[in-house]
Amino acid sequence: MSRIAFYGSSLLSSYWNGAATYYRGIIQALTAHGHRVTFYEPDVYDRQANRDIDPPEWCEVVVYDGTPEALKRVAAEAAKADVVVKASGVGFEDDMLLREVMSHAAPHTLRIFWDVDAPATLAAMQADPDDALRTMLPDLDLVLTYGGGQPVIDAYRALGARECVPVYNALDPSTHHPVPPDPRFACDLAFLGNRLPDREARVDEFFFGPARALSGHTFLLGGSGWEQDKVPGNVRCLGHVRTADHNAFNVTPRMVLNIARDSMAATGFSPATRVFEAAGAGACLMTDYWEGIELFLKPGEEVLVARDGQDVTEALRDMPPGRDAAIGERARARILAEHTYQHRARQLDALLRARVRSSEATA
């Protein structure tokens, strides 16, 4: 059993925090293997005012003020842990947090950087030889990522990482599963994603373009940052969708759409959390193309793959009755068989136990 100090954006809130359900799924499944996790998250970006869950029984959560003084206090807690994890994109003084946490880790402690946005992190390091993470990489024991495949592994090693291992997104069947349809989310195509600069052009291509082409169809847009008066008239904006509503959001529409951010699509092997959550609910999922999709779902049978907006338009217009439900059923069966957080936790548990033993022996 390991004591794990995990410093991330937020476990309690998915508000402007797409990694929340990934953290929850991984950590809860990992504690089933006997690990004890304390999650440290800063009180920033109104996340605590928009919590999806209360602190769970399977993880201790420490919320600290968004100040340098509070950051240093919680970073000092790393000295008590067997494993210390600093995640990317915490959102408050990330470089300072990385330095403070790793400097307080005991000599035997396994020191991990966990990257939930590897393409962006790698781009920043490649552009700046003095980047804080880049200078510290050779001293860290392990880099974990939630996607990226061999290209990301190779890029991290080229920058000095000792080892890089992808731990992909997955499904938590206890939280994401089929539910009765909800009239609030009735539409032909739904997309859930916050408005981000490196996603907007792809949303226009894969979502707004088909909406403009199919004026008789209805579209639903969930996520923060979108403005109703800036979208086609047959698109309804919902704003932030709490995780408690994700199942109904996924299962009610005829189809749900996944649109990768530019960097994720270019890198490939980076399935978003919503891919597994939608499949777990039995949704008919359509995704924009990215390399590696067949490792998770079979195109044409378990997922629809669109290379441009015209593919989305044609799928919506020409889908035979009943095919959408069959795709959703096959996708759910595949994800349950191969891609739950229990599968990921077994992989991670074996990795952590081996590395902790090695660190203790070296110390």
Rank of each mutant, 00 (worst) to 15 (best):
T175Q: 12
D94Q: 02
R157A: 15
D308N: 15
P271R: 09
G148V: 10
G239V: 12
L110K: 04
V356K: 03
Q342V: 11
T67E: 07
Y22R: 02
P178S: 09
D46Q: 14
V83R: 10
G280D: 00
N234L: 11
Y64E: 03
H108I: 03
E100C: 12
A337R: 09
D204F: 03
A49K: 13
L30N: 03
V85Y: 00
E163A: 10
C164H: 01
E205P: 04
R323N: 07
A170E: 03
L144S: 00
R36K: 15
W290N: 04
P180R: 11
Q28A: 14
A201D: 13
Q310V: 10
R242I: 06
S224H: 11
E227V: 14
V235L: 13
I27G: 00
C284K: 00
D308H: 13
E60F: 05
P138R: 14
A333P: 05
T267R: 07
G233N: 14
F191T: 05
P181D: 14
R330F: 09
S10L: 07
P138I: 09
A20L: 05
E329M: 14
D94N: 11
C164S: 06
R162A: 15
I26G: 00
S358L: 12
F208V: 07
F6G: 00
R24L: 04
E93A: 15
I4F: 04
V101D: 01
G328E: 09
L220E: 00
S2C: 12
G309T: 10
G328L: 10
D52A: 08
A248P: 00
V305H: 09
F276L: 02
T175L: 13
Q342C: 07
D65V: 03
D115R: 06
N169R: 02
D46R: 11
H339W: 12
R162P: 02
P55L: 07
M125G: 04
M319W: 06
R162S: 15
L316P: 02
E77M: 11
P299F: 07
G233Q: 15
L30V: 03
L71M: 14
Q228W: 06
P119Q: 07
A81R: 01
V152N: 01
D141C: 05
R346I: 08
F206C: 01
Q342A: 12
I259G: 02
M1P: 15
G8Y: 00
A350V: 12
N234R: 04
P151H: 05
